[in-house]
């Protein structure tokens, strides 16, 4: 193997589309999404993995875009908020967020929606406790948690 591999082209599969992007060894997935590809739905909040605003799905599970190095994402399936709706057809989670007014400033929303999407795939009918536990890694600084949890539970059809 080569012992020095710096600026390289990384092949990333994002929302079912292959992208060949230049990335230094320390470039994060979030930087590639926002600055190279213009997919700005994932937000840069704390850049420390705490807030969840940069959440994307890696092979269907929520991870921190800010803590993933782009080079380490080759060979994995990445889903961003831009990859959920088909045209104007929102997903059930997105519909529920709209119906419940689970959006205030909106900065956390893409991360919230992606985390909820992954939850519903694994647990189709989460109750409030399961929704709260699953969403605990996504912070909303408007503190709009109640409507967010309501939306997640409603999207799963449980009460």
């Amino acid at each position: 193997m080569t012992m020095d591999q710096t600026m390289a082209t990384v092949s990333l599969r994002i929302n079912d589309v292959e992208h060949a992007v230049p990335a230094d060894g320390r470039t994060t997935l979030l930087e590639v999404l926002r600055e190279t590809l213009g997919l700005t739905g994932a937000k840069r909040g704390c850049n420390q993995g705490v807030c969840g605003a940069c959440t994307v799905l890696l092979d269907g599970r929520p991870v921190r875009g800010c803590l993933m190095l782009a080079a380490a994402c080759a060979g994995h399936d990445i889903t961003t908020i831009e990859g959920l709706a088909e045209g104007n057809d929102l997903t059930p989670v997105q519909e529920a967020f709209v119906e419940h007014g689970a959006v205030q400033c909106g900065f956390c929303t893409s991360g919230m929606v992606l985390t909820a999407t992954a939850l519903l795939k694994e647990t189709p009918h989460p109750n409030v406790a399961a929704a709260r536990a699953a969403m605990s890694g996504n912070l909303c600084r408007c503190s709009g948690y109640r409507k967010i949890i309501d939306a997640v539970v409603a999207a799963g059809g449980a009460r």
């Binding site: 193997m1 080569t2 012992m3 710096t6 600026m7 230094d24 060894g25 320390r26």
Partner: peptide, 15 residues
């Protein structure tokens, strides 16, 4: 500039 290395074996990682 930061090198990004992906060894396939433990021996390669040690190297």
């Amino acid at each position: 500039m930061t090198s990004f290395l992906e060894p396939r074996t433990v021996a390669e990682a040690v190297a």
